[in-house]
């Protein structure tokens, strides 16, 4: 449905962010995210940063399973 790619924000200007995914860079819309700074990570879909990402999947999945399984 929606191919998403995590990418690092290089710079932000006028609602447009330059993002970097392991060396591939492209300008994407930053309009959907209120506060965005260089160094933040975002999820990019079809040229739009759709969400700021807060953690990596490793930590998060461990925490989720800890919560579900006693």
């Amino acid at each position: 449905m929606c191919v998403g790619l995590p990418a690092r924000v290089v710079n932000v200007k006028d609602g447009v962010a330059l993002v970097d995914a392991s060396g591939a860079q492209r300008e994407v819309s930053a309009e959907l995210i209120e506060e965005l700074d260089p160094g933040d990570y975002v999820m990019v879909h079809a040229g739009v940063a759709i969400a700021k990402i807060t953690a990596d999947d490793e930590e998060e999945t461990d925490a989720l399973l800890d919560a579900v399984i006693d």
Partner: peptide, 13 residues
């Protein structure tokens, strides 16, 4: 795979 190639492929699926 070169990381940048991986990045480009990631963007374009």
């Amino acid at each position: 795979v070169d990381p940048a190639v991986k990045g480009v492929c990631g963007m374009l699926g």
